[in-house]
Design a protein around this nucleic acid. Structure first.
Lengths: 257, 257
DNA sequence: CGGCGTATTGACCACCCTCAACTGACGTGG
DNA sequence: CCACGTCAGTTGAGGGTGGTCAATACGCCG
């Protein structure tokens, strides 16, 4: 198989599909941060033609655990949760994907984890064989994937500390902090942004509990405690405002150094 | 910087260092599984000259969290634990490295995790700049690293289920199962081997507790329960024998499918 | 308004933590 | 040779955090 990508066709000769505007890499909001940001602008039109957009409603399944998945995707908008379920129904959220993150397990047909839309989600999908061939030809893209994956290992291990050693209060505080960091104003997903102090939680109480290894009632109680302590404000079910970021970090058990 | 690797010098012309035998890639027991297994045999002598072996006793620190680490290494023998510590002393083991695993965080000076020898450890070290340059030149090696890192993400996420959702008994059973899988007879570290039913735990009770998010007393009690249930035998502190592997898997909450 | 799903609050309790004492192996030194 | 200290592991008693079950409140929509 040979992926043709170099022969950048001239401008304004793109195929006459009506959806091309919605798929255009040129105006893609996450390209600079996604894997495809490693490609040169001339390569985009061809990539564009192989990409296909998919939409999911909140709660919809994107991929089942252990199932064969014949495409991979970049998250364009929304939040995707990766889950692991035991046979008796106990479930753990093992990761969250934000815009620009890659969904899918390269070089392996089936992932042991399920993927589910936590909010409405837009994906930009590529067929698996095409995607993997692209990786082999574009070493810059492969390098980006490697860096991303290394960061994900670090993040997963960091979360192991949360799950294994923190109290319920620290867990909830850690989650709020994580959300405040990743839900940057417009550039959702960037980790380096300054934390935002007012946002909608992309997860229900049940999902928060599944991410923190707690029960839903415990989440409610701890959020209540944080509210009466003046650390946060909760307005309705999902709207949340951080009143005292320093205190929140302290409660999350963040290292001083 | 240009890493010279291709010019394979002829046989029997190797430099007259007295330690070369102990460093020889030719007789290295983990090469086929380690990153350097992606290199052609002709490339080994030069790699050999840049590699340096280090030894650690059990309990010795290899790298401190947040500290700059100017080399990376392949684990030749022994078990390395990766730890994350909170300012009040609570500690979580976030990963274990077995022979052939890579120690260190490529493309980033400092890792947020500490590395400590759980058993006596032998490392095969390369300077960071040399290692990273090698990765750029040898795409096969880079690809191996990518696959390895993807597997590590999966393993870390799998462990998040253990930490977040399993009971103490299931946690201990899961750990024994993990050890039985990774401590293969001679090829320590290979994940695909059939589980071995008799081995020495590479971790103390305290370390097991730190890996499972439990207390040392709970470990003792759960091991006791597994022993009276006839699932395992404990002979002295660390020697352990699995009497009923099926029951152990069941207790670990392993999915049937 | 009534029905439904999600979130909150309360009462009770179990699992695991905490603290403490004890055992056994090992090494040192009188 | 045994006394002694140390360290890792075991065992026991009691308590606290978070789980469980149930009732209630709230938001959404027909």
């Amino acid at each position: 198989m040979r992926v043709e990508l170099q022969g950048g066709e001239g401008p304004s000769t793109r195929p006459a599909d009506r959806m091309s505007k919605r798929l255009s890499c040129a105006i893609c909001g996450v390209r600079d941060r996604a894997l495809c940001g490693a490609l040169a602008p001339e390569q985009l039109p061809r990539l564009n033609r192989r990409a296909c957009q998919r939409h999911y409603q909140a709660g919809q399944f994107i991929a089942a655990a252990g199932q064969r998945q014949d495409w991979l995707a970049t998250v364009l908008s929304g939040v995707v949760k990766l889950t692991r379920t035991m046979c008796d129904g106990r479930q753990q959220i093992v990761g969250l994907l934000f815009p620009s993150d890659l969904l899918g397990r390269p070089f392996s047909d089936a992932s042991p984890f399920g993927a589910e839309a936590a909010t409405p989600v837009e994906l930009c999908c590529l067929e698996r064989p095409y995607f993997e061939e692209l990786l082999h030809q574009e070493s810059g893209m492969k390098h980006r994937l490697l860096e991303r994956t290394l960061n994900e290992v670090d993040a997963a291990r960091e979360w192991m500390l949360v799950l294994g050693r923190k109290t319920a209060e620290e867990k909830v505080a850690s989650l709020i902090l994580l959300m405040a960091q990743r839900l940057g104003s417009r550039n959702n997903g960037a980790a380096t942004e300054r934390p935002v102090s007012r946002f909608d939680l992309p997860l229900s109480r049940t999902e928060i509990a599944e991410y923190l290894g707690l029960r839903i009632e415990t989440i409610s109680r701890q959020l209540g405690r944080l509210r009466v302590a003046g650390v946060i404000d909760t307005e309705g079910g999902r709207r949340l405002a951080v009143r005292d970021m320093g205190k929140l970090e302290q409660l999350a058990g963040k290292e001083p150094v």
